[in-house]
Amino acid sequence: MAAAVEITGLRKVYGSKRPVAAVDGLDLSVPEGGVFGFLGPNGAGKTTTIRAMVGHLRASSGSIQLLGVDVDKALPTIIDQIGAFVEAPSFFPGFSARRNLELLASSRGFARADVRRALDTVGLEERANDRVSGYSLGMRQRLGIAAVLLKNPRLLILDEPANGLDPAGILEMRNLLRRLGAEGRTIFVSSHLLSEVQQTCDRVAVVVRGRCVANGTVEELLRGEVTRHRIRIPDDGDGSAQERAVSTLRAHGLEVERDGHGGLLVAVSPSRAQDVTRVLAEEHIYLAELTPIERSLEEVFFELTGEPGAA
């Protein structure tokens, strides 16, 4: 599959006396089509990378190719195929949403019908004549998406698009991104909302301190070794069966803790899960449930980034 985004050895250093590398040798390949999540903690270099991708800053070294074209040399040749916003979408607050979009559209020769279509797509048609200064953060985000959609782009680069949206807005955004991705476009989304990314994205990359530490499909990232199982013991009335199960498992060297919902969490890999059933059966304790606990993207993220809360 052709790469929609190909970043090689990207490095951006700020300051000369005490240089700080915001991006430090980032390598990233994003295949064409689908929704790609770009994850990382604050200060990981996500926004700097996006700025470099759309030409808002020059990288210290490395190269970026979008849709097969070197950004440094020929971004203007493909700009009509790229829609983007970086951080909060920026518009003239004194102008209405429609006027802002019409000015952008006229600079590239797009029709007013394109503006109406874009506003309609993001559900802003009714408030299109209001000044942007009166818009909520969520409405500005939607206007940002409308500006992106004006060009009917092949590649969308969105920096935190769900920022400021209410739950209904997040759901709309999720559906919109999925639909756009399903149309064959490439959606490159940076986000902090890991559950959203898990539900929306086909592939993800995790960037830490300016470097890519993981890149693959969501399934690939979650496929790590299962290390815990949840077991449930039939209720015997006085809870003694569960107590006996805990002491039995601990006696066999297994780590056990209560899950707070009437079950037990046992630290054991799938290959040793049978040991749990065997040792309990020997004590005439029989399981009602034995479930491997799969990791969430959040857990994977915290493991990779070393952030507090790592599982």
Partner: peptide, 18 residues
């Protein structure tokens, strides 16, 4: 200066990067 202030330039440059 207003364009720098409102950061409208950021959006404009997505439409005209030259």
């Amino acid at each position: 200066a207003a364009e720098f202030g409102a950061s409208g330039l950021s959006t404009q440059l997505i439409f005209e990067p030259r």
